[in-house]
């Protein structure tokens, strides 16, 4: 085969590839565009056959309505605090535990780590009712604490970070011991900073999970001002299940923060999530 015919074959294939990738991209993006366009239409406009593409005018009526129906300010704050604290808790507790499991020796280490592994294997539904009952007994339902409760510690985080700590050379630990550092200093000043990529990945993973989670917030925080964005949206669906322009406005507002972050930090998002997968 001549060089040019190979090149021709490749380019022909590439056209084919571009076509499919672009078609797929369109399918991925279209729902978002349609959501935004619908959020500016009136009910009768949205019910036209054949459908109109652009709204007659970009009224913010639906947005005004949905802001009245759901206390978005609270929803944003609750979601934001939830994400923030979940990340802090996950990183703090999982890092120390991961470091200890990877680099320290103590009796029963293997047994205790099995507990961590076991939690990852067991499906979460098993835990939900009792966790709820504990919160109910503590009278801590409808609070930020209730939202945080299942995420106070993270078995996945521990497991994930441990892989990284195991990849760090033991010599580092020995060297810092010789320098007179105690275990805490070794951890916090030498090893922890070396896990930066992994910590960021864990943070992103935790953020997306906390933001997406609908069932738990819906279960424990029933007052509308204490809900997160996902849970709040679901109540909108219950009451206004077919007022689509308003629902779309709500969905847009709910997606906005994450979308904005993603547009800026896209690379970190993707690589972080990929990292959590490959190390598992």
């Amino acid at each position: 085969m001549t060089k040019s015919s190979i090149a021709y074959k490749l380019r022909k294939n590439h056209v084919f590839i571009y076509f499919f990738l672009i078609l797929g991209s369109f399918i991925m993006i279209f729902p978002f565009i349609w959501m935004i366009l619908t959020s500016f239409k009136t009910i009768s406009e949205s019910m036209m056959v054949p459908p109109t593409f652009m709204p007659e005018s970009f009224l913010f009526n639906n947005y005004k309505d949905v802001l009245q129906l759901l206390p978005f300010k609270n929803l944003y704050i609750n979601t934001g605090l939830l994400i923030l604290f979940r990340i802090i808790l996950a990183v703090a507790f999982s890092s120390t535990a991961a470091f200890a499991f990877a680099k320290l020796n103590f009796p029963l280490k293997k047994v205790l780590f099995t507990i961590v592994l076991a939690q990852m294997m067991i499906p979460a539904q098993i835990f939900i009712i009792p966790q709820y009952r504990i919160l109910a007994k503590m009278n801590m339902l409808n609070s930020l604490f209730a939202l945080l409760f299942p995420g106070l510690v993270s078995a996945f985080g521990t497991f994930f970070l441990r892989q990284f700590y195991m990849g760090l050379p033991d010599e580092l630990v020995e060297a810092s011991n010789l320098d007179g550092c105690n275990v805490w200093q070794t951890f916090i000043m030498i090893l922890f900073p070396l896990t930066k990529t992994a910590v960021i990945a864990l943070a992103i993973f935790t953020a997306i999970f906390a933001y997406s989670d609908m069932m738990w917030p819906l279960i424990v925080n029933m007052e509308i001002e204490k809900m997160t964005l996902s849970a709040g949206l679901s109540t909108l669906n219950a009451g206004f299940s077919t007022n689509f322009p308003v629902l779309m406005a709500g969905a847009t507002l709910a997606m906005l923060p994450m979308l904005a972050l993603y547009l800026v930090f896209q690379k970190q998002f993707i690589e972080g999530i990929a990292l959590t997968g490959t190390k598992a």
């Binding site: 109910a136 009278n139 339902l141 007052e223 219950a238």
Partner: peptide, 21 residues
Amino acid sequence: VQVTPWSEYWTKLQAAAAGGS
């Protein structure tokens, strides 16, 4: 005055009743 959406109202009330609160 606390608003709990209708879809959650009775669940919350029942939970509260069970917990004595």
